[in-house]
Structure formats: C-alpha cells, structure tokens
C-alpha cells in the first residue's frame, strides 16, 4: 500500500458517500445516470470474485464489501425506492450501455493476463470501469445545469483513478517486476474521459458559477 493508492481509495469512497448523501438528503436522483450505477455494480461484482478466495488485508476485504454493497444500494434506491425513483431522468438516461458491456467482454476475451475465468472477468471489470462513466457524462450534458453534489460526485469519481496512475508509476519504480499494462492503459483512458468535465468543473469553480456543460 502506498499514499497514492490510499488517496485513490479514499477519493473513491468520498465519491460514493457524496452520491449517497445526495440521494438520501434530497430524496432525489435527478442528474444521476442509473446506467452508470448499474455498470459500476457489475464492475465491482466481476472484479472482486477473489473476495472469498484471496485475503490480502482487512482493509482490502472491507473496502471490497463497501464498494459492492454501496453500488447495489444505489441501484436499488434508483430502481425501487418509491420516492427516489420518481426523480430518475428516465427519458434522458438513454445511453445503450449494453454495448459497453459487450465491448468490454469481447476485449477481455482477447486481451487478458491469463485465460482463466477469474482473469477474464478481472480484465472485463477494468475495461468496463474505464467507460462506465459515459452514460453519466452524456446525462450531465443533456440535463444542462448540474447540482453541486452531482458535480462533486463526478469530480471525485474521476479523480480517484488519477491517484491510481500515480500509484502504478510508484509501484513500477519500487517493485522490480510490477507491470500492470491492462490497468494502466485502461486507467489512462478512464481519466482522459473526464478531461472535459474537469475543465468545465474548474471553470465553474474559478468563476464561482454553476457548473454548465455545453450541450
């Protein structure tokens, strides 16, 4: 464990707490893409298949359970909660995210570290996470003004993987045979997808204006 990875995990956790706060406090999920939340639940369920077979640390196991649990709770809230589900932007959240799942799975079948069930699903989860934010970014552009908590959620979610990139660089130089090409390349793509969001987020913060994404 290193400070970059720990910061990344904490930033990721903060993004989830901010999203839970928004949904719980406002009893609304307007501006949140259910499709991105479903993709993230799939990412965690397929990435942590080793949850019960490999033990690294209490921290690692607890965080896996928190990520899996929170993503399922958020999907449940947006689908089933009698009040929250009414505020879901059903007609705006129309990204065909099944294509993202299929594309990631096909790529995982082609590019993986080892042709085993667990490794293919691990690679699938890495590729899927890189593009899982797309429905959310499209929804933000369509829904025009973005409320603060939603903006902060996306900001922290995008930032966490940037910390992981620093972690991979650090591990590359400190551990002789550390090479995580799949994670690194996907992580770079994932962070790059947030580039324009970060730009508009910074502009809105500098001018102290509401976050506006160009349609």
């Amino acid at each position: 464990m290193n400070i970059f990875r720990f910061s990344g995990d904490m930033t990721h956790l903060i993004s989830i707490l901010v999203l839970l706060l928004k949904i719980y406090a406002t009893k609304s999920c307007s501006g949140i893409s259910l499709k991105t939340q479903e993709l993230y639940a799939l990412v965690f369920l397929t990435r942590y298949l080793n949850l019960f077979t490999e033990f690294f640390s209490v921290y690692n196991t607890v965080m896996k359970l928190v990520f899996i649990g929170s993503s399922l709770v958020i999907v449940w809230y947006m689908r089933m909660h009698r009040v929250v589900k009414l505020s879901y932007d059903k007609e705006l959240d129309t990204f065909r995210h099944y294509f993202l799942v299929v594309a990631s799975f096909v790529l995982a079948l082609l590019v993986h570290e080892k042709f085993t069930f667990q490794e293919i699903f691990w690679a699938f989860s890495i590729y899927l996470e890189a593009i899982a934010i797309l429905p959310q970014l499209v929804l933000l552009q369509r829904s025009g003004n973005v409320d603060n908590l939603t903006g902060q959620y996306v900001f922290f979610l995008g930032s966490y993987r940037a910390f992981y990139i620093l972690n991979w660089i650090y591990r590359y130089f400190t551990e002789n045979h550390f090479a995580r090409l799949i994670s690194c390349i996907s992580g770079l793509v994932q962070t790059a997808l947030y580039a324009d969001f970060f730009y508009y987020y910074f502009i809105s913060w500098k001018n102290n204006k509401k976050l506006q994404l160009p349609a």
Binding site: R5, D9, H12, R47, N50, E54, F56, N60, M63, K64, F67, E113, K114, E119, W122, Y164, N167, H177, F178, A179, R180, S183
Partner: peptide, 10 residues
C-alpha cells in the same frame, strides 16, 4: 518471469 501477480488492488 511475468507471472500475473494476484490482484491486490481495489
């Protein structure tokens, strides 16, 4: 030897 290390990252 590029043994795939077990995935210790979240």
């Amino acid at each position: 030897t590029q043994q795939p290390q077990s995935h210790d990252e979240l």
